[in-house]
Amino acid sequence: MGKRVLLIEDEPNIIEAISFILSRDGFTVHTHEDGETAMEKVRATPPDMIILDVMLPGRSGFDILRDLRADPITAGLPVLMLTARGQTKDRDLAERLGADHFMTKPFSNSEVRDHVRAVLEA
């Protein structure tokens, strides 16, 4: 059983792509599409790492990140943030809120894979 990655993302094709890449590399990928219930999902089955989209229905990725960092149990979880908006403003905000890494869509598959490997296999 590989390390568990929780992918919080609402675009089905992107979910499928990231799941495919990481599964092939031996990680277990869980997915969740709704921003509002994301924290419950994290608490129910704590992953080893989270990949978090910014634009989510219900609740934004930034709000979820803030909650993660505020909760002692999840505060140390590695978080990779993805955004399609591509503004430096978003990058700055993500860093300030304590994201470990920030990627702008479209990303290359290897970029995602290498980062997840670096975090989970160190």
Binding site: E11, A17, I18, I21, A84, K105, N109
Partner: peptide, 23 residues
Amino acid sequence: SQISHELRTPMTSIRSFSEILRE
């Protein structure tokens, strides 16, 4: 920002799957 999002989202899928198909 909206346009960026709307354009990048499908591009992400396209790039990702095209890489998968290639690799």
